[in-house]
């Protein structure tokens, strides 16, 4: 477990082998798109139509694309703040 008051290295690449890299728990956000576009589908498929006659599955997937982009950008900006963009 990494304590939050530990000095944060600017880049873990330069941190050297003695410092264990900071965990990237925010990467768990990347699971959301899969829950949205895969796990939720049986429930979504039961809804049928919205706004009159628009298939809900289509609307759900369109929002899913935006949610996916949102999750990735959140991860990207946290990584950028931490200087982790080049970290493998």
């Amino acid at each position: 477990m990494t304590h939050s008051d530990e000095p944060r290295p600017q880049s873990s690449i330069q941190a050297g082998p003695s410092v264990r890299p900071r965990p990237r728990r925010h990467w768990w956000l990347l699971v959301i798109p899969y829950l949205w576009c895969i796990a939720a589908i049986p429930a979504v498929n039961r809804v049928g139509y919205v706004f009159g006659n628009v298939p809900f599955l289509l609307v759900w997937m369109i929002i899913g694309v935006i949610v996916t982009s949102g999750c990735i950008s959140a991860v990207y900006f946290v990584d950028r703040r931490n200087g982790d963009l080049e970290r493998i």
Binding site: L30, C37, P55, L58, M61, T68, S69, I72
Partner: peptide
């Protein structure tokens, strides 16, 4: 009809994997 909407998911779901893998 609806089965074809899958295509919206193919690109979207490849991106998080790409974020991890392509670098």
């Amino acid at each position: 009809g609806a089965p074809g909407f899958f295509v919206l998911g193919t690109v979207a779901l490849a991106a998080p994997v790409g974020y991890f893998l392509v670098p």
